[in-house]
Simulated scan of single mutants.
Amino acid sequence: MQGITVLNPDELGQDPAVGMDLALVLGVGHLEIRTAYGSNALVLSDARLREIRRLADERGLRVAALASPLWKWCRPEAVPGRVDSFGFPTQVPADDRARWVDRALAVAGILGTDRVRVFSHLSVGEETETFRDDPLLTYALKAAERAGVRLLLENEPVCTITEPAQLLEVLREHTGLGLWLDLGNLYEAGHGTAEAVEALAPYVEYVHAKDYVPRDDGRKRFVAAGDGDVPYADLLPVLHRVRPVLPYALETHVRETPGEALTRGAAFLRGAVPGGLA
């Protein structure tokens, strides 16, 4: 069996039909939903979500994952730095968070996916919260199990859990939690090595592929997967050896020519993952 290639329609804009049509052109049969119609998926109405599902169904496409913003937040009194939360608040009262967990599971049900991304709290100095011991995580994992959904933790640099040792600690503690491995983020954190991927691989259930080159001002210039500094030639064979069947989702962040970046990235992944991707 082969792994699959996944495309996020909002890379091409807020009309999901545009990205879905590109997926058809590229022979990509699976979608990741994050935002559409100018809103984060969690705050879209049920009618809008059903519209996304209808557009996908009409094209024979399946939603592979909901890229939710759960836990990419801090308390209202904390002040986050520059964070891209894709249209969702970064400051969320503690007593309002379970509602968003429930909403994410409901959204996943409408879209027809059994994978939901989570983060690990924004890192905000002394106000930083602990993810591993958060009672909401226990609640969410139980609710997800009842709903037939897997919660998958992404390694995100602006959040608290980004390095392999930290990831392994929380994944071993919470066996119902899987890993949404972003290889570009792993490299950015200084752990883009075959050894790190081999240690994390048994827990990986979903992969984000993005690439970049450093700019002179210290920021990143995002490019198509395979065109930047992330050492995919070293990482992908190791991941495939341990986990031969995975979804690989393109997250280019390329603003100027997103269609070209997705096209190049899809071709790269299909050639770079041993055995290819559907």
Rank of each mutant, 00 (worst) to 15 (best):
S123V: 12
L171K: 09
H191K: 09
W180Y: 15
V25G: 10
M1R: 14
C159A: 15
R221E: 15
F119A: 02
R146F: 12
L7Y: 01
V6A: 00
A278R: 15
L167R: 05
C74S: 10
I4V: 15
L250M: 10
A209H: 12
L61Q: 10
L239F: 00
D229M: 15
T113Q: 03
T138P: 09
R48Y: 12
L236E: 09
L49G: 04
C159D: 12
V118W: 05
A196G: 08
A144N: 02
I33E: 08
T130H: 13
V213A: 08
R270S: 00
A147E: 14
A17L: 09
G3A: 02
G112V: 10
E32Q: 14
R146Y: 02
S68D: 03
R62C: 11
L171F: 08
P214L: 13
L12P: 01
L26N: 02
L236A: 08
F131W: 07
L177F: 06
L152K: 05
H208Q: 15
L136A: 12
S123P: 08
A98P: 10
E198H: 14
N40R: 07
N185D: 12
I52T: 03
T175W: 14
G87T: 09
A261H: 05
R132I: 15
D102M: 07
V149S: 02
T113G: 07
E163C: 11
L262T: 03
P76W: 04
A144Y: 06
E77F: 14
P9N: 07
G19M: 06
A143T: 04
D229H: 12
L186C: 06
R48T: 12
D182A: 01
L42M: 09
P16E: 00
A267W: 07
R48F: 11
A41R: 00
A17I: 06
R132C: 13
Q166C: 07
G27W: 00
V149P: 01
T160Y: 07
E129W: 13
A196I: 06
